[in-house]
Nucleic acid binder design. Sequence first.
RNA 1: GCCCCGGUAGCUCAGUUGGAUAGAGCAACGGACUUCUAAUCCGUAGGUCGUGGGUUCAAUUCCCGCCCGGGGUGCCA
Length: 621
Amino acid sequence: MRPGGSLPVLASGGRFTLPSSRRSDGWTMDFTFAEDLREFLAHAYGVEVGSIPVGPCPAEFRGDLTVSGYVLARQLRRNPLEIAAKSAEFLGCHEDVGAVEAVKAFVNVTLVPAALMRDTVADGQKLLGSVVLPAPERRRILIEFSAPNTNKPQHLGHVRNNCIGMATAAILRRVGHDVARVNLVNDRGIHICKSMVAYLRFGQGETPESSGRKGDHLVGEYYVAFDAEFRRQVAALREARPEWAKASDEELFLRTEIGRTAQDMLIAWENGDGEVRALWERMNGWVLAGFEETYRRLGVCFEKTYLESETYTLGRDIIRQGLESGVFRRREDGAVVIDFSDPALGSKVVLRSDGTSVYVTQDIGTTLLKQNEFSPDQQIWVVGDEQVYHFRVLFAILGALGYPWADRLVHMAYGMVHLPSGRMKSREGTVVDADDLVQELEDLARAATLERAGAEVPEDIEERARVIGMAALKFMLLKVSPRTTLLFDPEASMTFEGDTGPYVLYAYARIRSMLRKAEAMPDEDRVDWAALGSAEEKALALRCAAYPDVVRKAAAELDSSALAGYLLDLAKDFSRFYRSCPVLSAPAAAQRDARLLLSDRVRAILRDGLETLTIGVLESM
RNA sequence: GCCCCGGUAGCUCAGUUGGAUAGAGCAACGGACUUCUAAUCCGUAGGUCGUGGGUUCAAUUCCCGCCCGGGGUGCCA
């Protein structure tokens, strides 16, 4: 059971260690003036100078870009003000520079428009092409996510997990890694037996077909029914036996008739009891079919799906071997444990005294299985932050067992989803169901689209509703940092305005519309970039140029929110440009062509970026 | 008790390998559709960056203490 308790959330386990681009700030695209400045400074001070720290110039100052004298000062070991003055002096004579101003230790550079465009958006191939890492930095990565239990339908917490997993995989692929997505379905255990017991007791033989209900929802109802009956029995027990009044539900589980029945069923399942297995297969089949439907709607897919019923015994042999080699020891009570030198980890049982596996033992087994089947350089688990300790233990055990790849395992811990009323709790019915949520967003998107369409109903209205609804959902989940505990306020979240997926989609659709009207695209080689130069145009071009680094940073830090935030900024920059710079009706042909091409660059990046977040686009909205 | 994560505008969240006057969306208020799609744009208002120290030319960012919230600390998953 991966996503734990009532579900997810996450937090952050340590730092991630994927190969990263050299600079996290600034641009991968090289500015000619910066390169020339680098050489100049290296020569002037007789020191090796790394890359020049170029960043955006804050709006309050005059300039397009800013070079920080403070950062250079660390490399050059000179006075920042002196460096800034010297740099400004040099840049004042540079042909690309229209104006330069040193303010304190900052050098604000205004580029000649043609140079700015040349160094940013002129080469469209390079712009999108440089997202990909050089071959030596590419890795084979296996990412596990979703990992649902087959006793109830998925809810918003699972949706966050699924979306983060899919988007992270897509981001890693985008920069050139070889990524395999795997799911590990928890299809066995006491929780499934609970649904089964309740079904036998209250189900009267109903099926998804007979009830017209989606299989996972149907089974989930019996899980809830079990809990209701269990609570009733526990309450009665406490009433009858005052000495147990203070015992926890868990402590009393096996004292209740229904709890005992579920436990017996689990044992029967493990012994391969025919009837139990048949019922289990039937009900699991219903749930898995339901999941398939949910995954289809969300666009979730995997290269491989493991079933825990087939892997849960795998770790035991490794434990026995480790016992012989002294990694583990057998405690007086018969349980096998590992004693960590790190006091924060303490001592951990890996095999119960009856010889059965615990959670971490199974994970040792599946980790080895995945390692053998995929030979990844790195494995990533997208699992809620409540399991940080579990993964620290798992990784420490694998390290103790001597696997050289153990220090490259990553737990991508993400935060829980909370509702305004607090944590989601299945038993109390305070969960946001995944299927309902998707449906609701699609309905809202349809209504919003029709409202704006006026009399003519678009032919592809269903497609639009689907794409817009999903964009809203995924963007909402992906735009916040994975580690953040997310508050889902239905009122405020179900909107298509402001910082949302549909906002980005809208910018894309407006560009498409414009390009359709333009009919022919101008010849790239003949465009006169010098025709541009307004603040909006320059800001847009500079934003475009930052794209490759943003994607690389998102990949290196496993952070979809860096990319989502960037796309929002880009769409915003475009909207400003669109408002103040007429394209099709630009005063001069050269201006029209250059603006058209600039718009097309934005279009390409928006599409590339959205797809890298697994969000589809629309040609019209 | 101990460990981990978080505390930034009324709300939801960015920003932080230390750097110029801390940002966005929503909500509030005021503007802009005979003009390439107003799911848009512009403006106003809104902050002791939890708190107290320390390091530094420079701290929301790094270090220590404290307060508040969440999670973890099982022969559960």
